[in-house]
Design a protein around this nucleic acid. Structure first.
Length: 910
RNA sequence: GGGCGGUUAGCUCAGCUGGUUAGAGCGCAUGCUUCACACGCAUGAGGUCGGAGGUUCGAGUCCUCCAUCGCCCACCA
C-alpha cells in the first residue's frame, strides 16, 4: 500500500472537532466493521512455513457456558496474534467449535426432552415439540427418537451455541481468520479423525477388546482416565462375616469364619476372592484356603497380597467383579472368576446359580437354590437399591455362610454390626452423578502404556510457557495407568470407521474387523455397507455388522493442528502450516487436550504438534476457588463487555501472566477504561499541537526519545518471551508517568511558543513521534482506541489505514514507516539523563508548590532549585522547559553539599 | 502420601541472572475546576517481603526445614 492511495481513502481530521467523550460502544462497532473490510485477520495462503506464525487455537466446547475464563485466555491469544502481525509474521489464527460429544447431547436431552435409542427408525421432518404434545408427555418424560433425528437436533443446538461464542469473540475484537472456521463434527474434521484412526490402525497402535472398562451407568458409555474425577462421597462400612470352606469340611486349625469390612455390600454376589497382607498373622492360616460368601455360598480363594493394607477395615477384604481398579488388577493377576452382576444401566442383571459340579453356564454356589432365591430379590434393582436389599438380607441368619456347617449350628446374621458411616473418595465421570463402575464391554483403545518414553521425549521438545508446566505434562504422562479408551456409546460424534464380518453361524468376528478405505471418508458404518458387501447383508449370516460407537471427542480435538493443515485432504497444507507455532490453552486440560494432541502427533509422525505451548491460568473467585466450580454468582462475559467496553475487558485479561491464576477483580476493568480515556485525551492534545514539526534537536526531546527507545526495546523483549502482561506494564508506565504526566507537561508551552520556532518544531515532532510509537505498543492490547487515535492523522501520514496493519516500532531504520515516526538511534553523548533530570526537578517544584499551598497552575515570582553542582549542571540543559512547566520565568540555582536530589524553594505571586 | 505453583502495603499484583533508604494500581488523607483529560493532576501516609535456620561483605531474590492457600495426581476394601 502506498501513501498516495491511502491518502485518497483516509482523511485526517481536526482533533479539536472531536467530542469531549469517547463513545466506546459506537466506535467499537465501527472498528469491527472496518477491520473486516480491511481484512486485517486474513493470512497469506501462499506464504512459506518460515514466514508464518500458526496458532493452534482452542475450539471451545460450543455447548459449554461462557465465563470470564474464556475472555481471559482468548484475549492472550489475540494479543500475541496482533503483536506477531505487526512484527511482520503471516499470522494464521483459526477458530473451531468442539461441538460433538456429551455436553451437546445432554443439552439436547434437556432442551427438547428427548432420548435417542439406536434401533428406532429415522423419521424425516420430525417436529419434537408437536410430537410431545400429541403424546401428552409430561415435562420430565422423554420422547424416544432415532439416532438420526437426535443428531439433527444436536446440529440445531450447536449452531445456536456457536453464534453466542462468535458474538463474544467479535465483540472483543479478536482477530480470528473466520475463513479458517471449522467444527469438530463437520465433514472435514470427521474425515481427519477417521483418517487418524486408519493411520493408527495401520501402524498397529489401536485394538479392540472386551475388557473391564470404566463405565458411567447414567450416560451408559465408557469413559477415559482423563475424564474421571474423585469426589468425596458419603458411604458406610459394613462388617460382613464370611465362612471358611475348609473349616466346614472339618479341617483342624482353620478358623470357621472371618469378617471383612466393605463399603460395597451390594457386590457380595459378585465376590470372586478374598485377600489380606501376607505378613498379617491374623489371616496367615487362611491363605490357600477358600471363603464361602454369605447369602450366595460361593467358594472363592483366599490369597495373600502385598497391596492389602492391614490397617484398613478389618485387614481382610473381598474382591468382586468389579469394585474398583484394584479388583480388576487382582482379577487379571490371580486368574479369578468373572462374575459381572452390574448391567450397563447400573442394575443387577439376571444371573443363574449352579452347583460346583454342574455343567453349563452359571455362577458356582454350594447351595444354588438358596443363592438363586436371594439373588432374585435383587434383580432389576439399581445398585443403591441392591445395597439396601442386601443389607436387609444379610441381617437374616439364613444368609449366613455358617449355615453351610450344618443345620444344628446356631447361626447369627452375617452382617455383624450397624453400618458405620464414613466419607470416602469415589470415582465419578466428570460429567456424571453416579459413581463409575468397571464393566466388561467391547471397546476400542489406543495403546499408550508402551509409549511413555516416546511421549516424554516429544513433550520435552515442546517449549512450555511458563516452563514449569512441562512438569505437569510429564507427571500426567508418567502416571498413565490405562491405554486410551477411544470408543463411546454415544450418538453425536465421529463414527468409528469399522465393520465386523458375521460368519455363517451368525457369530460376529470382532477380531477380523474391516476398516474403511481412505476414499470413503467420512463414513458412517451404520449407514454405509462394509467394503465388499451389499447393504442387504447387514446383520445377516455371512454379512457384516457396522460399528455403532463413536470416538471420544478428544480423539478429534487432539487433531486441531492437522485439521488446520488439512492433513491428507485435497489441498493438504501440512508443509505450510505444520507443526503449528503456538498452542495456547488453560492448564486444566494439559492432561487431556495437550496430552492427546502430543499422543497423536507422536504416533502419526513421531514429532511435536507445535513448538510452544502457552498455558494460561484460571480466573478464580476472590476466595481463590476456581470460578466455574464456585457456587457464587456466575459472571457472564457479554454484560462485562457492555459495561466496560472491549478494550477495558481486554486490558483486564492482558494483566494475567501465562500460567498464573488471577482473582476476578472488577476494579481492573475501571483502570482499563481510564487508560482508554487517557489515550483518547492525550491523542487529542498531541495532535492539536499542529505547528509545523521539524528535527528533534532540543536536549529534552532527544533524551525523551532515548527513554522511549528503551521502552520499545523492553516491551519488545517481553513480547518475544510471551510476557505480554509485562510488555503492557512497561508501556503503560512509560505512557502514564513519562509521557502524559511529565513530558507533555514539560513541553506544552514550548509547543505553542511564538519565539522559539526550532524548539517548537522539535517539541511537536517529539510529541507526535511519542504518541505514534506508544499507540503502536498499545495496539495489541487495546485495539479500538489505538486505531481510533491512529485514524485522526497517522493513517493518512503513514499510509496504514489501520494501526493493525502498521509495523511494530523498530529500533533501527525502518523503511516501512515515514521518517518522522522512526526511532532511529539518537546521538546524545552527555544528556542521556536530561529527561529524568527534568522529571526530578519538576517533581521538586510541584512538591514545593504543594507545601507552600500554591496551586500547581499558578505562576511563581521566584523559583530556586538546589542540588549538587553536577545535578545543577545537568538541570541547566533543560532549564527553560522546567521553568515553563513550573510557572516561573527562570530558575535560581543553589549549590548544596548533600545528594538529596533536587529541592525547590518557591514564592508565589501576590 | 507425591508433584507443581503461590504466600511482598487494607485490596489486586510487579520485583530479571542476590547489591544503595522494597515498587505500581486501587483504596485512604490532603490540596488543585492548570486553556487534552475531575474516568484528571499533585502531594502524602501505609510493608520487620508467611515463619525459622543457613550460604554471603550483602537476601524479598540462593539453600534447608516448617506453616499456609490453590491446582494436578495417588488414596476408593
Amino acid at each position: 500500500m502506498t501513501t498516495e492511495t491511502a491518502a485518497t481513502r483516509v482523511k485526517s481530521i481536526d482533533p479539536r472537532s472531536l467530542p469531549r467523550r469517547f463513545d466506546v460502544k459506537e466506535r467499537e462497532a465501527h472498528w469491527r466493521t472496518r477491520w473486516d473490510a480491511l481484512g486485517i485477520s486474513k493470512h497469506d495462503k501462499s506464504a512459506p512455513r518460515a514466514a508464518s506464525f500458526v496458532i493452534d487455537s482452542p475450539p471451545p466446547t460450543a455447548s459449554g457456558s461462557l465465563h470470564p475464563g474464556h475472555v481471559f485466555s482468548y484475549t492472550h491469544q489475540d494479543v500475541i496474534a496482533r503483536y506477531r502481525r505487526m512484527t511482520g509474521w503471516n499470522v494464521v489464527y483459526p477458530m473451531g467449535w468442539d461441538d460433538n460429544g456429551l455436553p451437546t447431547e445432554r443439552r439436547v436431552q434437556n432442551y427438547f426432552g428427548v432420548r435417542a435409542e439406536p434401533n428406532v427408525p429415522y423419521e424425516p421432518d420430525l417436529n419434537v415439540r408437536k410430537r410431545r404434545k400429541e403424546l401428552g408427555l409430561d415435562r420430565d418424560e422423554q420422547l424416544v427418537v432415532s439416532r438420526g433425528n437426535f443428531i439433527e437436533l444436536c446440529h440445531e443446538v450447536t449452531a445456536e451455541d456457536e453464534k453466542t461464542y462468535k458474538e463474544l469473540f467479535n465483540r472483543l475484537g479478536f482477530s480470528i481468520d473466520w475463513e479458517e472456521e471449522y467444527a469438530t463434527i463437520d465433514d472435514r474434521c470427521r474425515s481427519i479423525a477417521q483418517r487418524s484412526f486408519l493411520d493408527l490402525d495401520e501402524r498397529g497402535h489401536v485394538y479392540t477388546a472386551e475388557l473391564p472398562t470404566m463405565w458411567d451407568v447414567d450416560f451408559q458409555t465408557a469413559v477415559a482416565q482423563a475424564e474421571v474425577e474423585d469426589r468425596p462421597t458419603p458411604g458406610a462400612y459394613h462388617d460382613i462375616e464370611f465362612g471358611v470352606y475348609e473349616a466346614m469340611q472339618g479341617e483342624d486349625g482353620v478358623p470357621a469364619s472371618f469378617t471383612i469390612s466393605t463399603t460395597r455390600p451390594e457386590l457380595v454376589p459378585a465376590c470372586v476372592g478374598v485377600t489380606a497382607h501376607p505378613d498379617d498373622e491374623r489371616f496367615k492360616p487362611l491363605f490357600g484356603k477358600h471363603a464361602v460368601t454369605p447369602g450366595f455360598f460361593a467358594k472363592v480363594p483366599i490369597f495373600p497380597s502385598e497391596k492389602a493394607d492391614p490397617e484398613k477395615g478389618t485387614g481382610i477384604l473381598m474382591l468382586c467383579t468389579f469394585g474398583d481398579d484394584a479388583d480388576v488388577e487382582w482379577w487379571r493377576t490371580h486368574d479369578l472368576e468373572l462374575r459381572p452382576m452390574v448391567s450397563r444401566s447400573g442394575q443387577a442383571s439376571p444371573r443363574t446359580f449352579v452347583g460346583y459340579n454342574s455343567e453349563g453356564a452359571g455362577w458356582g454356589s454350594l447351595d444354588p437354590r438358596r443363592a438363586q432365591f436371594f439373588y432374585d430379590q435383587l434383580l432389576g434393582l439399581r445398585l443403591d437399591e441392591v445395597r439396601e436389599k442386601i443389607v436387609e438380607l444379610l441381617s437374616c441368619p439364613g444368609t449366613s455362610a455358617m449355615t453351610m456347617l450344618g443345620v444344628d449350628v446356631e447361626t447369627e446374621p452375617p452382617l455383624k454390626s450397624e453400618p458405620r458411616s464414613i466419607e470416602h473418595v469415589v470415582r465419578y465421570y466428570e460429567k456424571g452423578s453416579t459413581p463409575i463402575e468397571y464393566i466388561p464391554s467391547r471397546q476400542w483403545f489406543v495403546r499408550l502404556m508402551d509409549k511413555k518414553p516416546l511421549l516424554q521425549e516429544v513433550g520435552a521438545k515442546v517449549q512450555w510457557l511458563p516452563d514449569f508446566m512441562e512438569k505437569r505434562y510429564a507427571n500426567w504422562t508418567d502416571g498413565i495407568a490405562h491405554d486410551w479408551a477411544i470408543s463411546r456409546q454415544r450418538f453425536f460424534g465421529v463414527p468409528i470407521p469399522v465393520w465386523y464380518p458375521i460368519d455363517a453361524d451368525g457369530e460376529v468376528q470382532y477380531d477380523d474387523y474391516i476398516v474403511a478405505s481412505n476414499d470413503m471418508l467420512p463414513v458412517d458404518p451404520m449407514l454405509a455397507p462394509a467394503p465388499g458387501y451389499e447393504e442387504s447383508q447387514r446383520g445377516e449370516p455371512n454379512g457384516f455388522l457396522g460399528e455403532q460407537d463413536v470416538f471420544d471427542t478428544w480423539f478429534t480435538s487432539s487433531l486441531t493442528p492437522q485439521i488446520l493443515a488439512r492433513w491428507g485432504e485435497n489441498g493438504d497444507r501440512m508443509a505450510n502450516l505444520y507443526p503449528a507455532d503456538l498452542r495456547p490453552q488453560a492448564h486444566d486440560i494439559i492432561r487431556t487436550w495437550a496430552f492427546y494432541t502430543i499422543v497423536k502427533s507422536a504416533l502419526h509422525d513421531g514429532d511435536i504438534p507445535w513448538h510452544k505451548a502457552m498455558i494460561s491460568g484460571f480466573i478464580v473467585d476472590p476466595d481463590r476457588k476456581k470460578m466455574s466450580k464456585s457456587k457464587g454468582v456466575v459472571v457472564t462475559p457479554i454484560p462485562l463487555v457492555n459495561k466496560h467496553g472491549a478494550d477495558a475487558v481486554r486490558y483486564w485479561a492482558s494483566n494475567g501472566r501465562p500460567g498464573m491464576d488471577m482473582a476476578f477483580d472488577e476494579t481492573i476493568f475501571t483502570i482499563g477504561s481510564k487508560l482508554v480515556t487517557k489515550l483518547y485525551n492525550a491523542g487529542k492534545f498531541v495532535l492539536m499541537q499542529d505547528a509545523e514539526h521539524g528535527d528533534i534537536v532540543n536536549e529534552l526531546d532527544r533524551a525523551f526519545v532515548n527513554d522511549l527507545r528503551d521502552t520499545v526495546r523492553r516491551a519488545t523483549d517481553a513480547f518475544e518471551r510471551y510476557e505480554f502482561a509485562l510488555a503492557l506494564q512497561i508501556t503503560e508506565s512509560f505512557f502514564w508517568d513519562a509521557f502524559t504526566d511529565n513530558y507533555i507537561e514539560l513541553v506544552k508551552r514550548r509547543a505553542r511558543s511564538e519565539d522559539d520556532a526550532q524548539g517548537r518544531a522539535s517539541a511537536v515532532a517529539t510529541l507526535r513521534l511519542g504518541l505514534n510509537t506508544l499507540l503502536r505498543l498499545f495496539a495489541p492490547f487495546v485495539p479500538t482506541i489505538t486505531d481510533e487515535v491512529w485514524s485522526w492523522t497517522y493513517a493518512e501520514e503513514t499510509g496504514y489505514e489501520s494501526i493493525h496493519q502498521a509495523p511494530w516500532p523498530k529500533m533501527s531504520a525502518d523503511a516501512d514507516i515515514p521518517e518522522q515516526y522512526q526511532l532511529a538511534p539518537i546521538d546524545t553523548p552527555d544528556s542521556d539523563a536530561s529527561f529524568q533530570t527534568a522529571c526530578r526537578a519538576i517533581a521538586a517544584v510541584r512538591k514545593a508548590k504543594h507545601e507552600a499551598k500554591i496551586g500547581l497552575g499558578k505562576p511563581l515570582a521566584r523559583l530556586q532549585i538546589s542540588g549538587t553542582d553536577d545535578q545543577l549542571d545537568s538541570l541547566r540543559l533543560v532549564e527553560s522547559d522546567v521553568a515553563d512547566a513550573g510557572g516561573a520565568a527562570k530558575i535560581g540555582y543553589q549549590s548544596a553539599a548533600t545528594e538529596d536530589g533536587y529541592v525547590a524553594a518557591v514564592e508565589g505571586i501576590e
